[in-house]
Design a protein around this nucleic acid. Structure first.
Lengths: 163, 163
DNA sequence: GGTCTTGCCTACGGTTCCGCTCGGGATAGT
DNA sequence: ACTATCCCGAGCGGAACCGTAGGCAAGACC
């Protein structure tokens, strides 16, 4: 349950693209705008191009642009492009896991975990994030102040259970 | 966004413990019941003990048992014990991330991702899973048949976008 | 055509983490 | 004592992750 640097960098570059008014943006500009490692980002942009999320143009006055309007690219699309499936259990997709005995219903748990990720990541587009208009799903989740706290535990000191 | 073997193994062992009628269960029994690697599970059980989730007894007729009733141990407790924080962005907690420019609202997205994981993992206990009575939160998520499909995309063949 | 700019591709290196094993030491029952 | 069981630290092979380097290909401009 770790969000990779690739995913984070990809989002930041794409958001910069989505917010840009010029038709194309150079890689160099993307890296400096968000202070990302130049060559690494280049690599990530290549993956995004192969996934059909960005388009690129070579040569002088080249650069990158979104392949679709920003309101038609969901965050889930981006995550899948750079990290593969949203949720995997030991390399298996949740619905392919098999459990016996007392763990029989564990599969349903993993499927639900993936589903919960989907409700967030598939309902939000790049345009939403740029405009700061996150979906109602997210607003509902984040309106609870507890969502912003590391991890609160009624019995113990919160500092002991970071999250 | 990858569910580790440690988390999976921990769940399976704990579920076996929760379902057991005997007061204590030997490590060997846990491994064979779910066919898990013996020494590796031992290590995981040690982490669970340090986190106060299981108790152990040494010597002949030793073994493991839950430190609390199974309906007072949430899946989130288990995940945190073996994997640390539920969601991190490049080693940072979601609320500690800082973004500039077009990525400004990205922080809220990551916070929402963690919140959505919490709604699933903190609402379900070991007892729930053993009894197959998952919380209403999960039932709602899983009642949508789409939750069980790899990844459906209106335009393309589903097989091309595994998830 | 030549040159410059920019993205594309392949390969590689360092580090960390994951999954797992091994060997022995401590502890409890008998 | 003896045996069964958990405890602990070390280590290890491989993979993944993060990032770098260098040269090649394509487009713009003179």
């Amino acid at each position: 349950m770790h969000i990779s640097a690739r995913a984070d960098y990809a989002m930041r570059a794409l958001l910069t693209l989505a917010a840009s008014d010029t038709p194309r943006v150079k890689g160099e500009v993307l890296t400096s705008a968000q202070s990302l490692p130049r060559k690494f980002l280049e690599q990530i942009l290549t993956e995004l191009r192969r996934a059909g999320i960005v388009q690129s143009q070579r040569g002088a006055d080249g650069g990158y642009c979104l392949a679709r309007p920003a309101n038609q690219i969901t965050l889930a699309d981006v995550m899948r492009a750079v990290d593969g499936p949203l949720a995997e259990v030991r390399g298996l997709r949740p619905e392919d896991t098999i459990y016996a005995g007392a763990a029989e219903h564990l599969q349903e748990v993993w499927v639900a975990v993936r589903a919960s990720l989907r409700t967030v990541l598939e309902s939000v587009t790049l345009a939403d994030v740029v405009e700061g208009r996150l979906s109602k799903v997210i607003d509902r989740l984040n309106s609870d102040p507890a969502a912003w706290i590391s991890h609160h535990d009624a019995a113990h000191d919160a500092a002991h259970h970071p999250d």
